[in-house]
Nucleic acid binder design. Structure first.
Lengths: 219, 219
DNA sequence: CTAGTTAATTGTTTATTGCAAGTAACATTT
DNA sequence: AAATGTTACTTGCAATAAACAATTAACTAG
């Protein structure tokens, strides 16, 4: 399998976000083979010819291979190409970003979570990919249900409030947030489900069917 | 140059928007070669290995080849791939969309403008590309300076108002529109420049340096 | 039964927005 | 030169939504 001048390698790279200890983190995997063997990088792999429609199938396969799970939210980000981005030669990388609830990550994983403000130097053009992924995530977070996909299936209003603030990076008024979210038909209360401590129990919510199915359609 | 199983053809396809007779139109070119020779389709072409960074260079080359001009606004849209999208075999298409002021189009062009509500059947997966391009354009139009790129360098407030309405597809209040646009530092009045008829002359505006340079950076 | 803690709501003020009417600045007509 | 028509632009007001601050609700633990 030799590379011609006219046809590049095609790969996917994935920027996987999660929230750990109240901070937005990126999941990095140490590279198993050269180039940059042993260096933490965005999980990626080659696209197979049979992976139809768009390259989402390939991204799913990569994520399943690294984490053993499916990402609740996965979206194509941008396509990078050129002769210089990979030392092996002309390549095209279709970049994806995904949101992974921390609850889905098991401990002994082949990935490590790094806060986005404290990323190590990354190989290839991965710094560009990460920058674009964060920009997109922040941009969409403000007006969409996106950050909710960083939470497990059941969550309280305050969980959601915190997650939005962490992804956007600014403080949001509590009362206004509640009101706006409930207006938008993004989440619904789960009947008779509460989470309690030594205080008033918090009502549990879930994403509405509308949000879940509208996301499915995009895949 | 034979296609291997592992490396697809890489092409760009461009969805070129313009406003003609108060309607949002798409520019289509009749295909010069098989497959689908003679059929109107999105202008496209193969990506060359030396076209670095991302595939924007290839998209520029295609647009320059068809229209003889550079698009004032050009943005990567989505990447489509798979063995079935092109009858010639496995291919990847990086789709772009661009905004072209009608004033830049000369008459005897190799393209025809078709209103987006009256598109003919398009070959390949071009209908998907167009659908996604319109969705993105509409989505961004509401909160950005994007529709202004459909106008020439100088325009009146009412020109801008009409263009926004045409791209979004709904009516916008005149007073609120003026107010909001001026708040946002998107446009600025050109000193002492007016356009008159048999009535009060309209002040001419241009995009601010801030908007123009922030777009340049994205390229 | 009181204190402590987090959840959720309620008012009050302050910007935004939507709508309607009015004023401004011309050219053209009388 | 005054009246008229036409498009540009502004103003005022009512309705809505957002930001802020404080209050009430529902529990547990001592």
């Amino acid at each position: 399998m030799e590379q011609t001048d006219q046809q590049p390698w095609v790969m996917v790279d994935t920027a996987l976000f999660t929230i750990l200890e109240e901070r937005l983190c990126l999941l990095l995997a140490r590279r198993q083979e050269p180039p940059f063997e042993g260096v933490p990088a965005l999980p990626g792999g080659f696209v197979h010819v049979e992976e139809d429609m768009d390259t989402t199938m390939a991204a799913r396969r990569v994520i399943r291979g690294k984490l053993g799970i499916d990402a609740p939210y996965l979206e194509q980000l941008f396509t990078f190409s050129g002769p210089a981005r990979d030392p092996r030669g002309w390549s095209i990388s279709v970049a994806y970003y995904a949101l992974i609830p921390a609850a889905l990550l098991s401990q002994s994983q082949a990935v490590e979570a790094v806060p986005v403000e404290a990323l190590p130097g990354l190989p290839f053009d991965h710094p560009q990919i990460v920058a674009k992924a964060i920009e997109r995530l922040r941009g969409k977070a403000t007006y969409s249900s996106l950050p909710a996909f960083l939470l497990p299936g059941e969550f309280t209003m305050n969980d959601l409030h915190r997650i939005y603030q962490q992804t956007i990076g600014t403080r949001l008024d509590q009362a206004s947030f509640r009101h706006k979210i409930l207006e938008q038909d993004i989440i619904e209360p789960i009947p008779n489900r509460f989470r309690g401590g030594a205080h008033r129990p918090a009502r549990l919510y879930r994403l509405t069917r509308r949000v879940l199915t509208s996301f499915e359609r995009k895949i």
